[in-house]
Each structure stands twice: as structure tokens, then as C-alpha cells.
Amino acid sequence: MNTNLFKYCLRLGDNSLILGHRLAEYCSYGPYLEEDISITNTSLDLIGQAEAILKYAALVENAERTADDLAYRRPEIEFYNVQLVEQPNGNFAHLIARQFFIDAFNFYLYSALKESTDNTIASIAAKSLKEVTYHLRRSSEWVIRLGDGTSESKIKMQEAINDFWLYTFEMFEMDEVDEELITKAITVDLKPIQDLWNKKVDEILVMATLTRPEDGYMATGSRKGYHSEHLGYILAEMQYLPRAYPTAKW
């Protein structure tokens, strides 16, 4: 097994899985019905992406585990999603800030990964990119609307941007996984992605009449399986049935 490729797939898959889960939580809480449907659409895209990537992870691992085993039987420490996606939905501005940050990242990442020398990664990236392009369009528009809406929405949107800023750094962290996969052109250097991300974020924040926060403490740890306290609760809920009835098929 290529451990690094396996871990990299988990990173991508877990990002989509946990964010998809968070958005699914929001179902029936939308600010109006049309938006409720749009949010679940995004959630469905993400869970579909997670399924595709985790399936590939299981194949790479070659240990007779399935995508479901990886999603429903792994402990927290073996999850590699960034802490941003596990942050609670909060108010609608939080949901949007979280979405915008990750959408912008995914957009540039998948744009690059569709040229991957690994055919499966390349094809998953190409398919996901279509979905993510739409997600980014929507989340950017929402940041602008809420930023440039009422004085109340402006405050809430700025607070949400500030609250989640510390989780944006982790997306661009690289370790030995990246080192090996970049040399094989399976994955890409995240530094240029970060530059593009910064440009996009600045552009949208200006349009939204919002301010880019100062960098302070920046969360880290997810590359090693260390998370915020939220992930444990997400998994406790998500994995409840398969864990409580280990022999049952659903």
C-alpha cells in the first residue's frame, strides 16, 4: 500500500464527508425554503465526493475495508479533515464563511488535481470541480450579500469571517505525505494554491465591504489526526448505528 496516497485520499474524503455532514445537519433550518434546498444540494455533492474518494482510499489501502468502513468505523485520530469543516453551523453567516473558505480552497485544489498523474484522483477532481465551481459561486455571492446587506448582516458576516480565520491556515499545511506525492505529480504544491486563495478571498471581501482579519493563532494538528472538540461529537452521532450493531447491514 502507498500509505501517503491513502492518507491524502482520507484528507480529501474527510473534508467532504465532515462538511457534507455539517450541512446535512442544517436541513430544515434554512432562512427560507429555496435556500434550504440549495444547502442540501451542496451537502449531497460533498457526500458524493466523499464516497468516491473514500472508495479509492479503500482500494489503495487494500485491506478489505469499504468506503463505509472508513467513514463509520475509524476513530477521531485517524480522521484527517481540516478543523474548519468540523466547526458548528452557528448562524447562517458562520455556515457561509466556512463554506466560502473551503470552496475557494477546493476550487483551486481540484483545478490543479485534475492534471494529476493518478487517473482516479484526476477524474474525481474533474467531476468535483464542476460541483465546487457552483459552490464557490454561491458562497461568494452570499458573503457579498451579507457583507453589503444590512448593518446587522454586515456585523454578523464580519464576525463569522473573524471567528473562522484561524482555521484557514491548516488547508495549506504540507508534510511528508505531500512531499512524496508532489514528486510523483500525483498532487500539487499548496503554496501557489494559497496565493490564489488569498487573492480570491481579498477580492470577495472587498466586494462585500468586509475587512480581512489579521493572522493570529492559527489552528494546526489535523494532518496528524488532532482536531477540535467538535469532531468527536460528529463521529459519535454519525457512527452510532454501525458501532452499536457491528454485525448489522443497513
Binding site: H21, A24, E25, C27, L44, I47, G48, A50, E51, L54, A67, D68, A71, Y72, I234, E237, M238, Y240, L241, P242, A248, W250
Partner: peptide, 11 residues
């Protein structure tokens, strides 16, 4: 939704 027991069931 948050406790659906498989990815397929969740979707």
C-alpha cells in the same frame, strides 16, 4: 440524517 448508517443511506 446525522445518524444514517451508511453513505448510501445518508444520500
Amino acid at each position: 440524517i446525522t445518524r444514517a448508517p451508511s453513505l448510501r443511506a445518508k444520500k
